[in-house]
Every structure is written in structure tokens, then in C-alpha cells.
Design a protein around this nucleic acid. Structure first.
Lengths: 247, 247
DNA sequence: TGTGACTAAATGTCAGACAAATAAATGTAT
DNA sequence: ATACATTTATTTGTCTGACATTTAGTCACA
């Protein structure tokens, strides 16, 4: 690790970057224990507080975990997809809300990737995925569902579809897009007719998937995208005053 | 912000989460100044060090920026796509290297999404994108390029293709996939014949894009994916002893 | 063979001090 | 009155030292 320090940047940021680089480049391997805070402060020639701030930065990025006690310390953390999901979702949500990304743009990205997943899914799905999708469809048919519950079920349905592609990288990427759209989707009030149409399209998607008909599956997803956009634009039209980033 | 504190978690983590939630939910808006460290320490009834560790956690996630001086402090940061790229790339890289994701899986995800982009790009590209792609192709034809330079040009080519889709969300998502594969791609030694084939496929992609031929574009990308996988599997076959996560 | 007290090591938290940066207020000279 | 230098106040950055808390191991004792 370099000992050259730029002047104009926080020491804790520089130290964090040093350690981060060591992790990314494989000099520190998973579950390896870092030197103690005191040792690090001696090595970098800074105070323990500064080292601690650096370690907190790394912890915030899930690069390390810390344990107290005799054999404790900071350990390189295995970054799992599961742990990376929430961060991906938070980041996506903030990117959408802070950058005036239109609903259409977010929607387009999401469905473009989802259609790519569906293509793979037609070749690889298992009965589990299909069963989950059918179960969610049934749930979506229950009239007593609140809009939030309906949305949650919608997310579960699409998540199963994406997972059916059997590619964890794509599942991870899409988690951000799908869930980040939740706040926007929750602005929509689904009428009984809306729900019926969505259930209909979900069924078409699932049926096409089951008979491994990639073309029909793609077409159904395209129809769902188009319908979703219509619903959203209706909401925006009805509430022009609250035209925020979602408008 | 809640004042209820769980016992078993770092105070700095809890405070960071409190503030984070306030940002995500819009209670703190972009460029708004947070209370000073002293004020925060009084509000949360902890020491200034603890507050500082919490703030460093937020800074590591690009949620805030800090300024020194009289009118300084911590400010809510606008999370831009540009700033989110590096983090997305780091995370993707670590996810691949720490979770034994196969080259095939990463490759599949990347090309699946890239093909989705290409479909949009055929409708939306501008001359700029096309010019960049052509320039990179020409560069790739220069025999004196090192493998690293060739790879870098390859990334630039694909980035232009992805950007041509005109959807910042997709560009952001793909940045992770494309660049995270760089370390793996850099393991490949490109022979003159390999390069010629790649240039040929890049040209086919660009030509198809130019005449807005989505089908041909998709086919060329599929061919490139297949060729890339072949190259990679050859590398793995030649070096079975170093069969790490990329194997 | 447990079992409980003790020890050592590490992180977590706190208090207080000073350094450095920065903007605003103040003063001073032309 | 303006331009420039100085001072002042505020805030983050860093350091020091202390104590609390957690945890694994050790060792004596039953």
C-alpha cells in the first residue's frame, strides 16, 4: 500500500481507497483479517480515529465486516449477490428520483432487460419458477388486495420470471430496475379493469413461457410494457400539478 | 428521526441509516445542508466521533459531500449516473470475482443486455455514436496495439453502442457488466487472427446499426458473443492450473 | 471433567484539544 | 468610497488518551 498522501483529500478517504484497492486486486482475500486498528494507525502513520473513519467507509460499502472481542477485527467480506441487492436498489431509486429520469425511460430499461431475461427463461425455467408465477397471478386476482399488495405481488411475479433465466448477474441487475420503480408504481391506483388486464398479460407471459414460446412471451411483455406506460401517463395527466421526476 | 436505539449495533451505523432514510424518503433534499457535527452529536446524544463515523459511512455511499470552513458542513449530494458508474463497476467486479461467477454467465448477461440496447440503438443512434464506433474499429485494426489497449478500445466501442440506445439507465446498468469483465478479458492474448475476426464482427454490428437493421445487428452481436466465449474457453483450456473464478 | 473467574486483545464510545480551511466582518490606507 | 489586508467565527479534519464492552482463551478449583 502506498504511503504517498495527497494533501487536499481526507486521510481517511485515501486510506480507505488504499485498502479497497488491495481488496479489489486480490491482495486481501475473502475472510482475511486486516491488521488491528492500532496496527493500521502505525502503518499509515495516522491516529486511530482516522483509521476508524476509513474502516467505516469500507464497512458502508460492504467490503469489510468487523467483530469485537479477543479474536475480533476487520475481515474482508464476501460480497454476495443477496447483500448487494439492497444497495443496488437504493442507488437505483436515488438515481431515478434525483436525476429527473422519466417514467418512460425507467420503464423502457426495465422491460428491455426483462425481455432479454424472458428469452433465456423460455429455455431454462424450472417448475418452481412457473409455480411461483402462477401463485402470484392467482393472488393478483383477489379483489381485496390493496394497491401496495398488488404491486408487491407484481414485483414477486417479475422477480420469478427474471430468476427463471438462471443468470444471477441479470437477476442482480434487474433487481435495481424493478424495485426502484416501485415508488412510481405505487402512485398508480389500479382499477378492477386495470388489474384484470394485467392478470391477463401475466397469464399470457406465463403460458408462453410454459410452452417455451419465446416470440409470444416477448410479445406479451411488450404489451405489458405498453399498458404500464399508458397507466402511468394517465396518472400523470390526472395529476399535472405534482409533476415531479416521475412525470 | 427515531431516537430508539438497538443495543447490538454500532451507533454510527444506526445514525447513518437514520440519515440515509431521510435522504431516500426525500425529507432531506439535494444540496440541503445537514446540521453541523456538533449539532448532530447533541441531537443523537452521542459523541462527535460517532457522528463523524456515521457521516463517513454516508460519504462512502456518495450520499453526502462535506466542505470545510465557515459555511461548510455536510450536504446532501445529487447522485449522478456519472458518479454511480465507478461504484457499480467495483461492485460488479467484486461480485464476479468473489462468487465464482463463470465467464459464460457474465458474458451471457452482458450480451443479453447489450443486444437489448442494440435494438433500441437501431432506432435512435446519432452520427456521434456511429463515428465513435468507426474510430474505435479503425484503432483496433492497428497491429501495434497492446492487448490492454485493444481491450480498452473494445470497451469504448461497446460503450458507444450502448449509449446509442439513449437510455441512461441501461447505460448505467451495462457499465458494470462490460467493465467488470475487463479483468477477465485482459487474460486473453489476442492473436492477429482473433483481432481480425473481432474487427470484422464490430464492422458488421456498425454497418447493421447504420442501416437500422435490428435483425442483422442482433445476429452480429450473437456471433460476437459466441466468438468471445470460444476465445475464453480456449484460454481456460490452456491454463487449467490457474482455474480461478474465471474458469 | 467441568465450571467459573480472570486475563488479554480488540472494537466501540467518549471527551477535549488543536489544526486547517473558509467566508464574513472589520479595519486601514489610498 | 474603494480596494485591500486583517481579524474573527464557524466548521470539518486530525490527534491523544481514556474507558466501556465484547469475546476467546487460560487457569485454578471443585
Amino acid at each position: 500500500m502506498s504511503t504517498q498522501r495527497e494533501k487536499s483529500r481526507d486521510l481517511s478517504a485515501q486510506i480507505a481507497d488504499d485498502i479497497k484497492q488491495a481488496i479489489v486486486e486480490g491482495d486481501l482475500i475473502v475472510d482475511e483479517r486486516l491488521p488491528s486498528e492500532t496496527e493500521l494507525s502505525e502503518h499509515f502513520e495516522v491516529s486511530r480515529s482516522t483509521v476508524r473513519e476509513a474502516l467505516k467507509r469500507l464497512a458502508a460499502q460492504s467490503l469489510i465486516r468487523t467483530q469485537r472481542g479477543a479474536t475480533g477485527g476487520a475481515f474482508v467480506r464476501r460480497l454476495s449477490f443477496k447483500e448487494a441487492y439492497p444497495q443496488q436498489i437504493t442507488t437505483s431509486t436515488l438515481l431515478l428520483s434525483m436525476n429527473d429520469v422519466s417514467f418512460d425511460t425507467a420503464c423502457e430499461a426495465r422491460f428491455a432487460m426483462e425481455r432479454a431475461c424472458a428469452l433465456l427463461a423460455t429455455q431454462r425455467y424450472t417448475e418452481d419458477h412457473l409455480a411461483t408465477m402462477r401463485a402470484e397471478i392467482e393472488r393478483q386476482g383477489q379483489a381485496e388486495l390493496t394497491d401496495e399488495e398488488f404491486c408487491a405481488s407484481d414485483v414477486a411475479f417479475h422477480r420469478a420470471l427474471v430468476d427463471a433465466a438462471g443468470n444471477p448477474v441479470m437477476s442482480y441487475q434487474l433487481a435495481g430496475s424493478v424495485e426502484a420503480m416501485q415508488p412510481l408504481m405505487n402512485m398508480i391506483t389500479f382499477t378492477a379493469r386495470d388489474r384484470a388486464r394485467i392478470v391477463e398479460l401475466h397469464t399470457a407471459i406465463t403460458d408462453a413461457l410454459e410452452r417455451r414460446d419465446a416470440v409470444a412471451c416477448d410479445r406479451a411483455l411488450a404489451a405489458l410494457e405498453s399498458y404500464t406506460r399508458t397507466l402511468a401517463s394517465d396518472v400523470m395527466a390526472r395529476k399535472p400539478e405534482s409533476s415531479n421526476s416521475a412525470a
